[in-house]
Design a protein around this nucleic acid. Sequence first.
RNA 1: CGGGGCAUAGCGCAGCCCGGCUAGCGCAUCUGCUUUGGGAGCAGAGGGUCGUAGGUUCGAAUCCUGCUGCCCCGACCA
Length: 490
Amino acid sequence: MAKVLTSREENYSQWYNDLVNKADLAQNSAVRGCMVIKPYGYAIWEKMQAALDKMFKDTGHENAYFPLFIPKSFFSKEAAHVEGFAKECAVVTHYRLRTSAAGGVEVDPDAKLEEELIVRPTSETIIWHTYKDWIQSYRDLPLLINQWANVVRWEMRTRLFLRTAEFLWQEGHTAHATRDEAVEEAERMLNVYATFAEEFMAIPVRRGVKSANERFAGAIETYAIEAMMQDGKALQAGTSHFLGQNFAKAFDVKFQNKEGKVEHVWATSWGVSTRLMGALIMTHSDDNGLVLPPNLAPIQVVIVPIYKTQEQYEQLQAAGNNIKKQLQALGISVKFDDRDTQKPGWKFAEYELKGVPVRIALGARDLEQGTVEIARRDTLTKETIPQTDLIARVQFLLDDIQKNIYQKAFDHRAANTRTVETYEEFKRMIDNEGGFIMAHWDGTPETEELIKEETKATIRCIPLDEEAVPGFCMVTGKPSAQRVIFARSY
RNA sequence: CGGGGCAUAGCGCAGCCCGGCUAGCGCAUCUGCUUUGGGAGCAGAGGGUCGUAGGUUCGAAUCCUGCUGCCCCGACCA
């Protein structure tokens, strides 16, 4: 078979871009840094949305929607927040065009807005401005809201799914009566994300808190899940922030408690984005294309008929539709591709490129012998089994593929997670091996900054999912409470 | 925003250095026949203001200048 994709080993970036294009997930758009998500890519995103949305609702959250535009003045109310986002905001300054002398259109200078509008890079400010009116009493709390939306961040360099100027995401914004409740919420949502990543996306993640340097602008504490891609680089896959009372104070959101005392509320925010699509692609895919976890695959099973004559074609259609119906009755999404315009080999390659977990090939030979060929995408192996075993086998395979690709990713991460004691060793390892490096750090931003300058590695998180064993910083020799995860990242 | 590269058919490219006949190749598309258990074969056909604006020249895809867009590598970031 002719290689359709760039090889992963040769050029990881190119392989990734190529895959996103050829698997028909997305493409660069005419607008700088933005992306067009194509139907197949969007179908995967919809599966993610559905699973996440259910998890949010199961933990007591409701959806709402807030405006795309945020008055500039809102931004200046929380100092750290402004500083963090100021450099990447798209700003609306005018509201009208007019025809120009040259025959095109130009911005009408008379239509200048009195106050510019910021296209939201995140919605904390407009939401907290709104929450001020929604919250008066402890009876109004907790307020647990999620929004599915697009946001814009004017990044200097963009990359399909991983960092686009506009991206789709969900952002949760909650208000609580006490500090403890808010911290608990932030941690709860971190765990929701971790569970989603592991159970649906089949991506093992490390949970932890961010160092001060990497913290969200305006947060007291940022929790994150970090995944390892196949090239050993880290990808931040989701964040959950404990915002303390910063936004409540900035937007004057107060409530009266049971004792009649007026207090500022405590806040969290948390989000995951279409970046998860990038994580999914870079975690599981191979040189034949996408490998999708059955739990998120828009098509879980594809049936390809193989025939010579019209008579065979008709027989196979009946048999194929019958299998399709049985599988659908079990809630499995099936495509029976009986198009006469493409040949079987072409279809095999196509569905591999698109990551369909299970493929059933059904030919005249099978009808005679009562057999069927079934292939799995993760290992690219195929077997011929009796038709009577088919349904059970499909169910087994969907389950097994989900587990297998998780395990594969888990083993890859384990094999590329290394512990180092000295900074010399660290530098050598980050250059030669990559991956996650567990090392001691004295807890200061200065040391982290120095390491970043010299090695391009950052602290991905201070893990919460392992026991803290104290030691001494690899750079300064000062005491360290526990090892942290260093890596180069996307 | 710095450093590199690219722009020629829907996609991928050659041609450019050294200007010259009708601008070419692969994939894709269309037609016909043969095929169909891993991206089919043969025969034929259609499809281009060579990114854009200007300059040099008898003559520009090719040389020169400006502009625009895209990609890669950095800095920034989810």
